[in-house]
Design a protein around this nucleic acid. Sequence first.
DNA 1: ACATTAAGTGATT
DNA 2: AATCACTTAATGT
Length: 219
Amino acid sequence: MELEELLASRFSTLSEKGLLKELEDVGMVKDYLSGEKLMEIGQYIKAIPLVLEGSLKVLREGEDGNELLLYFLEAGDSCAMSFTCCMKDEKSSIRVIVEEDTRILFVPVKYMDEWMMKYPSWKNFVLMSYSGRFSELMNTLDAIVFHGLDDRLLKYLHDKSKATKKSQFDIKHNEIAQDLNSSREAVSRLLKKMENLGVVKLGRNKVELLDKFEQYYLN
DNA sequence: ACATTAAGTGATT
DNA sequence: AATCACTTAATGT
């Protein structure tokens, strides 16, 4: 797909003709393969990423090197962290890993201020994506604080399915455990329970969400 | 057939 | 719910 179409379909709230033209002129498109590291903790951010296609994982790291998944990014998202990070010229406090092959449009930071003034739909986009990320983080936070691992696992699978638009994942129980900062055994046991309930189907390196999953997730 | 890696299980704290 | 020790199952060479 051409950039113009991608912008129109994934970022339909960006409306001004001038803005779209500038995005096309000034932005740099880059492709990434699954598993690549897009951003490492401590790195400086030089551009705002707009996710055109694919999906990514945003991770936080603990002192001992443990990882914790904060949220997924999907097509149409941007990285809220990058807005403030760029403006304050701060190091990244997160790591970003490519989940599925991804295409990203990078916008140099220097246009941020100008566009915020010039294009209402850009300002709106930045604000919206910020508030969206914020409430997503709140959800993750209270899943951790107020709920058990079972709820977190459900949310994880649900979010992953939403980000990748797939219901079947090639993933090891161990990898899920790392994202949740938990143990493989605990994840295996919970998945097993879910399989017995007919909510998921398991295989080696494979987890499939069944029709019943969505319903179960909501309860 | 053998080695390696993923997943399942029970016990312990 | 985390960790350990161990078993069982699946997969690659």
